[in-house]
Write a protein that binds this DNA or RNA. Structure first.
Lengths: 240, 240
DNA sequence: CGCTATATTGATACAGTTCAAGTTCCGTGG
DNA sequence: CCACGGAACTTGAACTGTATCAATATAGCG
């Protein structure tokens, strides 16, 4: 599933598109070369395959370089809460306690390219590169912040506002990554994925999507997303 | 509101009860003395007063030493999502970007004692004390993890299970702090607070609480919490 | 003791779920 | 290129959980 890329054809950090959203964001070319030498490997993961399963005792973290992945928690009764839609630059699976199992699963929704880092090498990097310490703290702090924002719209608003918040967040992140969000955007997420992210039934999500589409705000069908009225979407999102 | 405690009567880190849950958890007495010297101050905050308001441009973080506080996000339509119940040891208001406003408000629900740290001193501590770097990363990582767990029960389960998850989490944290949770526990949270934490109406919370009480699982009225059947509570909590 | 906060109860309305039967999309192989 | 089949999405009807509003009751403070 996780297919190692031969060292000779691995892509360099120096020209990495995802880097400005990733752990290695800052740094001179010289620093980057040192950092890259402590990258453990580069991998491909086909769509619908797992990077981690909740409960795994893994010892590797990954930077998502290309592709989309979903991070989710499974509930005993079969439901699932998607806690994060991972996009290029996201750092996945990092933990401080080597013996703690991971608390969420990560599954590729499109073909992914990933850079791996062993626990040992991460600690090595943290010892020698002060920038990376601060950046790692910043990443974790931001993650908490983003999660609080999610908690707040998932907990408090109703379906229409949840959809708006979810899509707006996603579109904003895509835009920062250079995607043209004024026309059709390819969205490799199913109805069920979106439903599990915002905490409603796929059926209900469908009904509300129809309303949003009829109101000329946003169309979201069969992996194509089109935002027709940004202002209205923003208004729905923060007027939970 | 935030009342500074005179240096002569400030309490020491060496004997602090909350320390084992806090940033300064580890370290020898000598290290602690250095750390304490970079503590900016100690404060009292009366119940119902604010430590931060969402949007504030503050430059100080606090360790909650005594008391309870709630961290919440306000929504445009007047609703409120409580994102965290702060207990002794919790590190509040930390952020990496000095210019970013805080994304949640913090309000004391009982009288609180707090230790303050300026941005400058935090950075100073991080330069000289490697343990503190790792502990800060660990705190932020854990915060994300806890938030994901909340997101998952707030998003997916129904009221009865949400209450169970919320109370179980709280009781577990209190137990670790040495509270006897087999008898009556004092809970300085109103119905509205709990409702805003789990994402239901106070009225509905009341009705479901009656059911839980009739089933002999848990009683939670007028600031008194009593867990009567731990197993049943656990079962409700993870059988969302 | 009375006042204000907070909590309970009741009736009604609505958002969201469930289950089941259609429909549309899209990749596959002929 | 078209026909097929499975997956994804839509629609409908009945039901359930939760919200809302308003009235009553209880707790705790001055």
């Amino acid at each position: 599933m996780l297919k190692k890329i031969a060292p000779s054809v691995q892509l360099s950090c120096l020209t990495c598109e995802a880097r400005k959203f990733a752990w290695f964001q800052s740094g001179t070319d010289d620093q980057l070369r040192v950092r890259q030498s402590l990258r453990t490997g580069q991998y491909k993961l086909a769509a619908n395959n797992y990077l981690f399963m909740e409960g795994d005792q893994h010892h590797t973290s990954y930077t998502l370089k290309q592709g989309w992945a979903i991070c989710y928690k499974q509930l005993k009764d079969g439901r699932r809460q998607i806690v994060h839609i991972a996009l290029p630059g996201d750092f996945l699976g990092y933990k401080t306690d080597p013996n703690a199992p991971i608390d969420y699963s990560v599954k590729a929704v499109s073909e992914c390219m990933l850079c791996s880092f062993s626990e040992k090498n991460i600690n090595q990097l943290l010892l020698t590169d002060v920038d990376l310490i601060h950046r790692l703290i910043a990443i974790q702090t931001k993650q908490s912040k983003v999660c609080r924002a999610k908690l707040s719209y998932v907990g408090q608003s109703q379906a229409k506002n949840k959809i708006a918040s979810f899509l707006l967040d996603l579109v904003t992140r895509l835009q920062r990554r250079g995607v043209d969000v004024t026309s059709n955007v390819h969205l490799p997420l199913s109805r069920i994925d979106i439903a599990d992210a915002i905490g409603v039934t796929p059926v209900h999500l469908g009904r509300v999507s129809v309303e949003l589409s009829q109101q000329g705000i946003v169309e979201c069908r069969y992996n194509i997303l089109r935002v027709k009225d940004f202002e209205a979407l923003k208004h729905l999102a923060d007027c939970c």
